[in-house]
Amino acid sequence: MRWAVVRFPGSNCDQDAFHVLKNVLGQDVEYVWHKETSLGGADAIVLPGGFSYGDYLRTGAIARFSPIMNAVKAAADEGRVVMGICNGFQILCEAGLLPGVLIRNNNLHFRCETVNVRVENADSRFTGGLKAGQVLRIPIAHGEGNYVADEKTLDSLFANQQVIFTYSDGQGRASAESNPNGSARHIAGITNAAGNVLGMMPHPERASEAILGSADGLGIFESVLASYPAAAR
């Protein structure tokens, strides 16, 4: 299976994502510079974390106008998997590929720590190999991860099973203390209505090998792989 990791000026988790896909999962993966207009036929696309365009104006606000984003939108429309991690999530929201927006953490801190992430929906292309209610240990590293959307949008996200991950304590219970950024209804990751575009603030690529302290994130990439027909993998 072919993966594209899109690099924007200011991306800084691109190598981590590339490493996991290539060296841990043995995938065919290429970097794609944001000025490109083609994803080279990639089956799945990662928009990595970082600080594209220095987070000027708003996080992801300028990156969404990068030439490659037209190809990312087209790939999403064709049903290919698009994973936006951290800054990638922010870009997908600004691009309108996901609803809502990520604003400054309610505590104003840049939170850089490993958190508990509860799997809300284990029937998605990103969690098919995981269990509903399972708690993953995955790092976060962001100053703007506070998910905001109007009540109607939040209701529909839950009703349509688009909320894939929430912040919780180690037992999977939601609380204000275990929510690192004030995110609405503890949301840590959502998909689009079609279920092929994921945005998540935690960094699964930083938790995909035991030597790094947690391999809980690997199951997300493996689930994506398993969601493709065997011949395509």
Binding site: L57, I62, F65, G100, A149
Partner: peptide, 8 residues
Amino acid sequence: ELLSNPVI
């Protein structure tokens, strides 16, 4: 489209 985000 750029300078503001109408959601917020």
